[in-house]
Design a binder for these strands. Structure first.
Lengths: 349, 349
DNA sequence: CTATATTTGTGTTTCGATACACCAATATCG
DNA sequence: CGATATTGGTGTATCGAAACACAAATATAG
């Protein structure tokens, strides 16, 4: 246990005042003799000094961190998301602080307050919750938020930026694809409809059916949540369970749309449980296009979200807000999804 | 943008000194009149005050955060890991700060120094790198580290705690299982052998073969890394590639052991690429037992790591170190792995 | 050779919370 | 009733870095 090295130690060693060291640290070198500069730099290197961020933050009020709150990184989609956000943040000199909210507004609020008390003034939320009122207080105090994968809602009263894929379109692409393949009874498997992106996807599904002149059959929409709360396995378990129930009906659907890839993988298992094969007996489409989509058997037909561009945009926006480079009205970016046809869907003609 | 509320504001409102508010905040209420206490509490509630952690940290030198550094949370294993660590940490009143190192010692060192300069004095490393010398400097300065999934090495000169599954045993269980099923040519698919856990697993594989009286065929050990660096997809891609190469040989193996579940899923795809079926044409065993293992088709026979207990132990150890409740020699916990037989392996008799 | 600029740093205060020595007011006791 | 405890707080210095006004040393001008 060695004592911390402070700016004072460096100053003493270089024979200058702490102020001078601070000046160098903050790039105010223009009025500094080259030899002084070099002396200070040597002292820093020799002592292995690195400034205490806490002290710096207390003084400046700025902290180069952004908060990232997702339902759970145990879900590979959010894992990949967090990973992309981190990469983009690091490039801009920011660290990320990650929290799992399990889509619980109360946990989300607590996390946000926690991060706030660490001086973090910008956060990205991936949970896509219907309301954002639990964050109103902090936003009014000056917190900047980017809602990820949650298109702005008419009812939103808060100035919150958003970056999202067009989820209505995503589900329309999936549904249209199946309709064109001749499917008429298409099941929709989702977890709790407590998020904007899910509602939008359902809307896209209904829209596509309507456009095609097919009556909506409520029986084909399966929505349920796990009793024992949220877990790592939520998506696949629900997908499995939903597929089993829908495919067990007398007049079973010939195709399923899963709310995301994890649900689709679960649906594969559910179909298998009933002795049905994908795509021969039932076509399955996912949404996300994560890394596993092309590896599973059969490779999953799914709708791609441009995750990389989306995260980059989200990070850019939040940093501009934090640094006060944007002050105006909330920005809302909507990206285009893309249908990726693989082997999990087949013609029903 | 509302001004921050400080302890002074609360004190003024309650008609006491900041010291008194601080005393309450830190539980020193024993010599405080109940009515004063109540007045201060009311002031805190009315103003919605929450203490500035930065200032507190600067004064106390303590910060209730632990660093968690993993190769990448985009890998579901580390996503689940991070999620478990977070849960355990929160229970103990700690936050986690997460970093992805992509197994690069230099990135790992930079991250560690970054976290150190934030006042973090305890970190959990999940990368299992062969050497830990890149962290020597910080450890000498007082950083506590738990190496996760990396059994202590004889050459380790640093006082670093560890929590790991017995990786040698894990691979032995997998190999024995296949041997008992009658397999004699068993391939081993792994990424770069630059981690302790991988080397240990390879050792377990070799050990089991030797014990069974089977000569080691180096041709059956496939080890490669991706050219274009580390990505979300590393595991599955390498597994796929490895399986394709091994199964493409004239005298191909009848079974494969994948270094982890992701590689195993890749191996499924690789076998499929060659028109081979699992387990009819080739048996596959993974290691980890993540959530997808029982969902994929066929459900994966794998070796379970008791992730939950392991992370809990790691968090307990690191917090005891940070709080100075343990000072002695490094602790090394080794947990027992468990073979989970599903449908991806079958008899070769 | 004095007056004014310019260069090159420095001293002091501050951020918000905490630790700790210390003080005022009241209670207790012989 | 004066001396001593006890109760219930408070004043002040401090953590490490940064901001900013200001000062010493040197250069330049007239």
């Amino acid at each position: 246990m060695v004592a911390e090295i402070t700016i004072q130690d460096v100053a003493r060693r270089a024979g200058v005042s702490p102020s001078t060291v601070s000046n160098l640290l903050n790039g105010r070198t223009e009025r500094m003799r080259p030899e002084t500069l070099e002396r200070v730099q040597r002292a820093i290197a020799q002592l292995g000094y690195s400034p205490n961020r806490t002290a710096r933050h207390l003084k400046t009020g700025r902290v180069e961190m952004i908060g990232v709150i997702v339902p759970s990184v145990a879900n590979p989609f959010y894992g990949a998301f967090a990973s992309h956000v981190e990469r983009a943040a690091l490039k801009a000199g920011y660290q990320i602080l990650l929290g799992n909210s399990e889509r619980d507004p109360e946990r989300e609020r607590r996390y946000a307050e926690e991060l706030w008390s660490h001086g973090i003034r910008g956060m990205i939320f991936g949970s896509s919750l219907l309301a954002l009122t639990h964050l109103a207080n902090l936003v009014e105090h000056g917190l900047s938020i980017v809602a990820f994968d949650r298109q702005a809602q008419a009812a939103d009263a808060l100035p919150i930026d958003s970056v999202s894929v067009d989820n209505v379109l995503a589900a329309r692409l999936a549904t249209d694809h199946l309709l064109k393949l001749g499917h008429r009874r298409i099941g929709f498997v989702t977890g709790p409809l407590r998020t904007v992106n899910r509602l939008n996807r359902l809307e896209g599904y209904e829209h596509a059916l309507r456009e095609f002149g097919i009556a909506l059959d409520r029986e084909l929409i399966w929505e349920k949540s796990l009793d024992q709360g949220f877990g790592d396995t939520e998506g696949v378990e629900l997908g499995r369970c939903g597929a089993r129930e829908l495919l067990g009906k007398p007049n079973r659907p010939t195709a399923l749309i899963a709310i995301n890839d994890m649900y689709a993988f679960g649906a594969y298992a559910g179909a298998r449980d009933l002795g049905l094969r994908v795509p021969t007996d039932v076509s399955v489409v996912g949404i996300d296009d994560g890394v596993l989509a092309e590896v599973v058997d059969p490779p999953l037909t799914t709708v791609r979200q441009p995750l990389c561009e989306m995260t980059q945009a989200a990070v850019d926006i939040i940093i501009r807000r934090i640094e006060g480079k944007t002050n105006g009205a909330p920005q809302h970016l909507t990206m285009k999804p893309e249908l990726i046809v693989r082997k999990s869907t087949t013609s029903n003609l």
